[in-house]
Computed example of a mutant assay.
Amino acid sequence: MAGEETHKVGERGQVTLPKHLREALDIDGGDEVTIREEDGKIVIERPVSRKVLAEGYRRRAEQYGAITEEMGDTSREANAYLAGSPDW
């Protein structure tokens, strides 16, 4: 793994994040991070902010709205095309 470093875990279970990583990921003292176990590894990452999460939901809603509109148009076209077909 490139850039791999070894650090000691303190008696209280603490590890200091190296400065170059804190700077690269814009993590400052007092910031919250999310810590989880994943496939036998400890993963530390910045939590998703409410603003970023809201933006993702807004984009998804726009996508669904566009799909709904497209399907409505397709349904209207199909109804017009099949207008003379028997009702089964």
Rank of each mutant, 00 (worst) to 15 (best):
L25P: 01
R50Y: 07
D87G: 06
R36I: 02
E70P: 00
E37H: 10
E55I: 03
E32W: 01
A54G: 02
T34K: 13
E38N: 09
A61C: 06
K19F: 12
R50P: 04
P47I: 02
G10R: 07
S75N: 12
K19G: 05
V48K: 15
I67Q: 12
I27S: 01
N79D: 10
S85E: 12
T16H: 15
E45K: 14
V15M: 04
G13T: 02
N79V: 15
A54K: 11
E32N: 11
S85D: 12
A78K: 15
G10A: 06
V9H: 00
N79I: 06
H20E: 07
T6S: 13
G56E: 08
I44F: 05
R58H: 12
I44A: 08
E62R: 06
P47N: 06
R60Y: 07
L17I: 15
D39V: 00
E77F: 08
W88C: 15
E55W: 07
E23Y: 03
E37Y: 10
A66I: 08
G72K: 14
E23F: 03
T34G: 00
D31Q: 03
Q63N: 14
R36N: 04
H20V: 04
E70R: 11
E11C: 11
E37W: 04
K19W: 05
G13W: 02
G40N: 02
L17V: 11
G10Q: 11
R36Q: 10
S85A: 07
Y64E: 09
K51G: 14
V43I: 10
G13A: 03
V52M: 15
R58M: 11
G13K: 02
E32L: 07
D39W: 00
E69R: 07
D26Q: 13
R59L: 06
K51I: 08
H7K: 13
Y81H: 13
G84K: 14
E69D: 12
I67D: 09
A66H: 07
E70W: 01
D31H: 05
R12Y: 15
E77G: 10
D73Q: 12
